[in-house]
Amino acid sequence: MKQILLAVILGTILYSCSPAVFSHMNGNKMDKLELGMSKQQLTAVLGRGYTIAEKRIEEGNLIEVLSYRNYPQEREIYLFVFANNSLQEWYREIVPVYEVREN
Rank of each mutant, 00 (worst) to 15 (best):
I4L: 15
L6Q: 06
L6K: 08
L6S: 05
L6P: 02
A7L: 15
I9E: 01
L10E: 06
G11K: 07
I13D: 04
L14C: 14
L14P: 02
Y15A: 13
Y15V: 07
S16V: 08
S16P: 03
S23G: 12
H24G: 05
N26P: 00
G27W: 02
N28E: 06
D31E: 08
K32V: 02
L33K: 01
L35V: 03
L35K: 08
M37G: 11
M37F: 02
K39Q: 07
Q40D: 14
Q41Y: 00
T43W: 11
T43I: 11
R48S: 05
R48E: 11
R48N: 15
R48W: 13
G49W: 05
G49R: 00
I52N: 06
E54H: 14
K55R: 14
R56L: 07
E59D: 10
I63K: 03
L66K: 00
S67L: 09
Y68M: 07
N70G: 04
Y71K: 04
P72Q: 12
E76S: 12
E76P: 01
I77W: 12
Y78E: 05
F80G: 00
V81C: 07
N84C: 07
R92M: 10
E93D: 13
I94R: 10
V95F: 03
V97I: 13
V97C: 08
E99T: 07
V100S: 07
V100A: 12
R101E: 12
E102N: 10
